[in-house]
Amino acid sequence: MLRYANPANFLWLADRVVPWLGWLTAALAAVGLYGAFFVAPADYQQGETVRIMFIHVPAAWLASFIYGVMTLSALGTLVWRHPLADAAQKAAAPLGAVFTFVCLVTGSLWGKPMWGTWWVWDARLTSVLVLFLIYLGLVALWQTIEEPSRAARAAAILTLVGVVNLPIIKFSVDWWNTLHQPASVFRLGGPTIDKSMLWPLLVMAIAATLLFLTLHMMAVRNEILRRRLRRLSIIAAADEAGGHVFVASAGAAE
């Protein structure tokens, strides 16, 4: 496994794995959507609107999961100073922002017909909105600092500070009196959802996770190429000037 932490080996692996992951994601999404629309019955209270849950719940799961991936990558950056950890952090932030956005919008589209309102400032919704803002802040931070290893360290610190929000999101429905319903899948005592709705939901959650892994691998591959381009551009500029250059992001003299 550690062998693939080398960027060149990662590129080799990504080129071979990404197409398979993509097709597996598409196949699972097709099965999940079939279950969501043709197997799962309308809910006795929510009616057909329950169909929104099959995308809202996986998006909510990914919003937190991606932040967990970023947290591990941040540790890789700060503890081991590994360039692949930097690339993994940077590549995950915009994906996390998009999935959190999907979670918020689909939740709102479910809330209007079910709760009678697009939005309430309850603890669950607010903490997920805070997560979305943290993602946007991280994306902006990566754009602000030009030198990649400096940007990675700054982003890693912000990521580790923001991780306190994850347990708040998870337990907000238990700690406070919220309009958002408590956990119904991952809970002590087992899921409270009927099997006919549970399996399509789980398949959709696995498909969403594989989608993220596919996109993340593709985006990390791009980050590796971006670093290669930056390094080659600096070397070319130095050659033109007739001198040697220290590539700060590389941490090695060229």
Binding site: I55, V98, F99, F101, V102, V105, T106, L109, W110, K112
Partner: peptide, 15 residues
């Protein structure tokens, strides 16, 4: 509520 369901899936697909 069809409009809400279609909108949710359309926005997700676009994303």
């Amino acid at each position: 509520h069809t409009g809400f369901i279609v909108a949710a899936y359309a926005i997700t697909a676009l994303a």
